[in-house]
Computed example of a mutant assay.
Amino acid sequence: MGKYLNRVKTRFGGDTRGMLEGGRYALLHTRTLEFDELRPYVPGDDVRDIDWKASARSGSVLIKRFVSEKHHKILLVADTGRNMTAPAPSGERKSDVALHILGAVGLITLGRSDEIGMVYGDAGGSARVRQRRGENHIESLLHCYRNHVATSRGSSDIACQLTYVAEHYRHRMLVVVVSDEPDADARLEAALTRVTGRHDVMWAIVADMPAVAIGGDGGYDVATGRSVLGAAAREPRVVAAYRRAEKERARRLAELMASRAIPHVTLSGTDGLRRGIVEMTGVWSRAG
């Protein structure tokens, strides 16, 4: 494995059995080489599947049936804006936590031969990597994410990436969003309405570092470079009001996710990676 997938595997582990099974639909059907049974030929069957010896013995044309495998087409939707350069509650950079989430989903797809692609960007726009399979492809996705977080100059705006998905992806997919904590505003609600109307969606959120947990004059906004609370961070009434506002913001976001039946998890760092991914994918798998 490449360096990023290896790094993810040390946190997530290598056992992905049973993950992403079920769901409301399998998006790509293929067949294995494992023989299942013989059945009579019907018009439209592939003539390459005819078993000529068995047909000669039975006096009728028989075809071989093979065990079917169900795969998914998966689209990662990743925030590469400036917000992802801020620290998570664990002290890790948010982009590092996000990279582990993206890599964990990639590891799950390896054992299932799922196709996986990515849409990424910031408030300035979106770009994409086409869906393919394989270890090298997933490693290149992680390299792409890392490089764009490092060079992005725009602020985070995951509604921009979701709107891009709604406009450019017409066939049903499993969409896995990885971002920081967005505001549940009208733009995000409208984008989610469009995307969930066609696709299944799961969402892994990388938590913000609380501004009042920094000490001194509080934290600063990486998007603007300004202090969040300034000297007021020392005043108990201001801190209490800030915490109420953050609790309300989290409640609105949770309600938006619930209203769109989106399984989601919030991660404070990579220590909770496996637990969070197992929880999120388990909810989705049971949805079918």
Rank of each mutant, 00 (worst) to 15 (best):
V119L: 04
V238Q: 02
V176Y: 07
R237P: 01
G23H: 10
A231P: 03
G218D: 12
I74W: 08
L188A: 09
R57K: 15
Y41S: 06
A127H: 07
R24L: 14
S152R: 07
V77F: 07
A184F: 11
Y120G: 03
Y164K: 01
A233C: 09
M19S: 00
I138C: 03
E189I: 03
L188Q: 06
D183K: 14
G230R: 05
G121F: 06
H168P: 00
M118L: 12
N6M: 12
G106T: 09
R172D: 01
K53R: 15
G117Y: 08
L20F: 11
I262F: 13
H264S: 15
S156V: 00
D114Q: 08
S95F: 11
R128Q: 12
D217M: 14
S285T: 12
L267Y: 07
R243K: 13
R93H: 05
G124W: 03
V201Q: 10
G23Y: 10
A98W: 00
H71K: 15
I101G: 03
R234P: 01
R146E: 09
A261C: 04
R274Y: 10
L102E: 05
T193M: 10
M118G: 06
R274K: 14
V47N: 02
A223G: 10
E92D: 10
A78N: 05
A233Y: 00
T16C: 14
V97E: 00
R31W: 07
G124Y: 01
E246P: 02
G282W: 01
D36W: 13
D208E: 14
G23L: 12
K9G: 01
L75P: 01
H264R: 12
A159S: 15
A78R: 02
R170L: 12
G59D: 03
R132V: 06
A287I: 08
T80Q: 00
R128A: 09
A223C: 02
A56V: 07
A150M: 07
S68F: 04
A245Q: 14
G154H: 10
S95Q: 04
G44M: 10
H148Q: 09
I74Q: 05
G154R: 11
L107G: 10
A127W: 05
A245S: 14
S95M: 02
H143T: 08
L75E: 10
D221L: 09
G125N: 08
A207S: 14
R286H: 08
H72R: 13
T163G: 03
G2M: 06
R17P: 01
R252I: 00
R17M: 05
S179T: 14
A56G: 13
A186L: 12
Y120K: 03
H168F: 03
R65F: 08
V175Y: 06
S95N: 07
R194Q: 12
P263H: 06
A204F: 14
V175C: 11
R237I: 02
I108S: 05
G13S: 06
A159F: 10
V61E: 03
A166F: 02
P43D: 14
T281M: 12
S95T: 01
D15S: 13
V61F: 04
A233K: 01
P43H: 13
D79Y: 09
G215S: 08
R128T: 09
R39L: 08
I214D: 01
G272P: 03
G103H: 07
T10L: 13
P182Q: 13
E279D: 13
V177C: 11
L192Q: 11
